[in-house]
Design a protein around this nucleic acid. Structure first.
Lengths: 268, 268
DNA sequence: CAGTGGTCTAGACCACTCG
DNA sequence: GAGTGGTCTAGACCACTGA
């Protein structure tokens, strides 16, 4: 027994704990388990999955972290009150975020340029320490509607992969990761900004309209600045949702405000 | 052996894994371990703490989740590039958040009222389902400077604890938790707003100034709406920082923009 | 009181990293 | 190849919940 541990040749199910978590998550997102319902107990899962308790607990820990369920001593785990979720890994990538919501991401490149770092538009402390930087301005779309303008400054090490890349074709993040650019950590500072003329034109709002602004700095493990971006969102089309529960740890999500509703968090 | 498991009589160190995590965290926040430094390996920690590997891993998991360290197979865990942190539990409470940054929270109650729910100002879908609600408008201060206006609607079940509470004296959240009000989960929707006349007066900004707006809905485990709040922040004094790393899960933080710096995320 | 989750242990195999 | 983290197991005691 205990032979296959990780399905070697056909690596589709990743790990056992991930498979268990996937199974439960599927039941929640499909609606089979509704908010307030109780999830199978650990001992039941041990029996039904054949895994040991440690592995089952590992799976449950994942779901708690995602904010999907919550637990406390003596009680069976229950589905969290507000379980409208997508993993936050997508916070790195607009494209995968939008896709994870079942919508279609789009992009329209306004400008891409390689210039000396001294000419960069990013704030000094966030400027990559390479001689050249690649700067990019793109309009991002969801289902063909403009929602965000991004102005990004890349370290040359990352930017050199972009000059021969069709930046209208898809996710830059995925392209860079595929080229082993170590985009490992990121800070996001949430702020507000007033639409300037270019914002106004691209997002189709009036000059001066308040916009949600996310200033992102992406680092390698070693702490080198690889990318700095200022993303300006139309707040009537996109906002950010953060969900947290007292026991267990907080988790983050983003959401698109839909056309019909005034607010995502209050929909049912 | 294996007798004391949890120090019973003197319950100060909580659990073993928490104690181990605390020890490492202290070394990071004190600067003894700097960004990029490597944390003791699991086997070393097993030896030095006397705990089993599972317990050590549990401690490490906590730190990863907090964004303090990151790990990957075959490499020793290392301190994350940007480890300026405070736990996000504080997202529930302005007061404890501010205190956790070593600053002094303050509050100035503008209005508190108990009224029929039908007269509530909160959006219908977020309105508590009690006959009465308690509504509160407070100006929040950091080190005596106004930074935020909160307009909160409480379920009567929570609000009834507020009428005889001096809302200028401290944290409402802590007061309610102390009275066993089950504020268990919360959604935060981040948005922008334009300062209205009251905002303008309280925050000392011009009417129309873009403000960061956090719409918070707090629920019990069962999903009942206990509180709805719209908090409007002066973006030049406060903004929100979110840190995430690719491996390991994202974590959230808030930060106060300091006077001298333009941006928190870029300080060093 | 039975059931449940929270904690802890001891030992195992694997995949990866780095010198 | 030695060291390291990622995964998994099997069994144990405790604290809490709820009928």
């Amino acid at each position: 027994m205990a032979t296959l541990k990780r399905m070697k040749s056909s690596g589709f199910t990743k790990t056992k704990h991930a498979a268990i978590a996937d199974g439960i998550r599927a039941k929640i997102t499909s609606g089979e388990l509704a908010a307030g319902d109780s999830v199978p107990s650990e001992s039941e899962l041990v029996k039904s999955t054949g895994a040991s308790r440690g592995t089952v607990r590992r799976a449950i820990a994942t779901l708690i972290q995602e904010g999907l369920i919550h637990t406390s001593q003596g009680r069976r785990p229950t589905v969290s009150a507000r379980a409208f979720h997508q993993s936050i890994d997508s916070f790195f990538s607009f494209s995968s975020w939008v896709r994870s919501m079942g919508k279609r991401p789009g992009q329209y490149t306004v400008e891409i340029a390689r210039r000396r770092t001294a000419e960069s538009n990013s704030p000094p402390a966030s400027t990559p320490d390479s001689e050249f930087v690649v700067e990019l301005i793109r309009l991002r779309l969801i289902d063909d509607k403009p929602v965000m303008v991004e102005r990004t400054t890349f370290h040359d090490m990352a930017g050199r992969f972009l000059l021969q890349f069709d930046t209208d074709s898809g996710s830059i993040y995925e392209h860079l990761i595929g080229n082993d650019v170590p985009l490992d950590e990121a800070d996001h500072v949430l702020d507000v900004a007033s639409a300037n003329e270019q914002d106004s034109e691209l997002l189709d709002v009036e000059v001066g309209t308040p916009l949600l602004c996310v200033k992102r700095t992406t680092y390698s493990h070693e702490g080198a600045v690889l990318e700095y971006s200022e993303d300006r969102y139309r707040p009537d089309r996109v906002n950010f949702v953060l969900h947290n529960s007292r026991s267990g740890t907080s988790t983050v999500f983003q959401a698109t405000r839909t056309e019909r509703n005034d607010s995502v968090a209050t929909s049912d």
